[in-house]
C-alpha cells in the first residue's frame, strides 16, 4: 500500500520528513528542501546581490548538496552571486586525494571555478607528516585549526566576499552539546550563529545555509538527485568525542525527531549571565589572525611542529606564548612538557 504524497496527493511518497512528519514524493521533497534553504538565506540575509561566494567543498555529502542547491537557488531566485568551490587539501593520502577527485568532478558538473589550497603550501606540513610527529591522539586538533585558517587564506586568494559551509542541523546540534559538555561558554554562545561577521583582517565572513537542514534530508536529497559524493571516513579520525555526541543525538532523534531542532533552539536562546568571564578576542602577535591569546592557535601549533615540540599547542601552555614571541629559550622543564611523545 504505497503512501501518497501529502502535498500533491498524486504521486507515491518517498520519504517521511523528520522535521514535519510529512510524507512527500520526490518532486515535492526537492521543492520543499530547496525552498527551506531559500527561506533560511532570505530571512538571515546571508548574501547581497553581486557578491562572490566561496563554497567550502570537501567532496562529502553536505558540501556537495550545498553546492548543488546554491547553484539552483542562485539561478531560480536571481541572487546575482558569483559562486566558486573552495577546497582544502590536508595532505592525507588515500582520503583527501580521493575526495578531491570528487570535488573536481563537481567542478565540471556544476560548472563552477575551483580553488584548492593545501596545508603543504600554506604551512609546510601535510597531515601525513604531522601524524608522524604527533601520533593519532591530537592530530584532529591540528587539522581543525589549520583548516579554518586555510579556508580563509583560500578565500583571500580568490577574493571572495563570503564563505559558506555545509554544516547541517545535526552538526550544529552536536556542537551545542559538545560545548555544553566541555563547559566552553564562549563557543556555546556563538556556535549557533548562522553567520559570522567579518572579525577583522584576514577573516572572511562565513555562513551555514544548511543550518536547519536535517542530515537525513541532505543524504536523501543527494541520493534521489544522484549527486556524486565521497563518503569515506578520514583515516586519521577516531574523533571520539564528537562521535559520542553524534551517536547520542542519533539515539534521541530515533525516539523524537524534533530533538535536533530542539537542541539548536536551546543553543540559540541561551544568554550568558553578565559577569561570566569570557576570553577577549584580539589578534595574533605573529600573523594578525583573530586570537584570544598572544599567539593564535595555528601559529602555536606550527611553532611547536617546527621546533620539534609538537605538544606546544595541545593543552594549556599560554604562559609560554610571550617567551616564544620574544624568542627566549625555554627551560628544560618547559621543554619536557611539550616534547614529542615516544611511540
Amino acid at each position: 500500500m504505497p503512501v501518497l504524497c501529502s502535498s500533491c496527493a498524486e504521486k507515491r511518497a518517498v520519504l517521511k520528513r523528520p522535521k514535519t512528519a510529512h510524507s512527500l514524493c520526490k518532486e515535492c521533497f526537492f521543492w520543499a528542501f530547496e525552498e527551506e534553504v531559500h527561506q533560511t538565506i532570505i530571512s538571515a540575509q546571508l548574501f547581497n546581490h553581486g557578491e562572490t561566494v566561496g563554497i567550502g567543498a570537501s567532496g562529502g555529502k553536505d558540501s556537495t548538496v550545498l553546492a548543488h542547491v546554491m547553484k539552483v537557488l542562485n539561478e531560480r531566485y536571481n541572487y546575482g552571486l558569483k559562486l566558486m568551490l573552495l577546497s582544502v587539501d590536508e595532505g592525507i593520502t588515500g582520503y583527501r586525494d580521493d575526495s578531491l577527485e570528487t570535488v573536481k568532478r563537481n567542478q565540471q558538473q556544476y560548472e563552477l571555478p575551483l580553488k584548492v589550497v593545501s596545508y603543504e603550501e600554506l604551512y609546510g606540513w601535510t597531515m601525513d607528516d604531522i601524524v608522524k610527529q604527533v601520533g593519532l591522539k591530537n592530530n584532529c586538533t591540528f587539522c581543525g585549526v589549520f583548516r579554518r585558517q586555510a579556508l580563509d587564506r583560500g578565500a583571500m586568494i580568490l577574493k571572495v566576499d563570503k564563505i559558506c559551509t555545509g554544516h547541517n542541523a545535526d552538526d550544529v546540534a552536536e556542537t551545542v552539546l559538545m560545548n555544553v559538555l566541555r563547559g566552553d561558554i564562549a563557543r556555546l554562545r556563538r556556535c549557533t550563529a548562522i553567520s559570522t561577521a567579518s572579525e577583522g583582517e584576514g577573516v572572511v565572513p562565513r555562513c551555514k545555509p544548511l543550518k536547519y537542514a536535517y542530515e537525513k534530508e541532505i543524504v536523501l536529497y543527494a541520493y534521489f538527485k544522484k549527486l556524486d559524493y565521497f563518503s569515506t571516513e578520514c583515516i586519521y579520525s577516531p574523533n571520539a568525542y564528537r562521535g559520542h555526541a553524534r551517536a547520542f543525538l542519533k539515539d534521541l532523534e530515533a525516539v523524537r525527531p524534533s530533538s535536533i531542532m530542539d537542541v539548536i533552539h536551546s543553543g540559540e536562546n541561551l544568554s550568558v549571565r553578565e559577569g561570566v568571564k569570557m576570553p577577549v578576542q584580539g589578534t595574533c602577535g605573529r600573523c594578525g589572525y583573530i586570537s584570544s591569546q598572544a599567539l593564535c592557535k595555528s601559529c602555536v601549533l606550527l611553532e611547536g611542529l617546527n621546533r620539534g615540540l609538537p605538544r606546544l599547542g595541545i593543552g594549556k601552555h599560554h604562559r609560554l606564548h610571550d617567551k616564544i614571541l620574544s624568542q627566549q629559550p625555554l627551560t628544560q622543564a618547559e621543554e619536557r612538557k611539550i616534547k614529542p611523545l615516544k611511540f
Binding site: P2, V3, R12, A13, V14, L15, K16, S23, E215, K216, V219, L220, Y223, F224, R246, A247, K250, D251, E253, A254
Partner: peptide, 16 residues
C-alpha cells in the same frame, strides 16, 4: 539498524 543509517525499500523511506 543503528540510528543514523537510512533504509529505503524500493526507493522509498522504510518509515513509510
Amino acid at each position: 539498524v543503528r540510528p543514523g543509517i537510512l533504509v529505503l525499500i524500493n526507493d522509498a523511506d522504510w518509515e513509510l
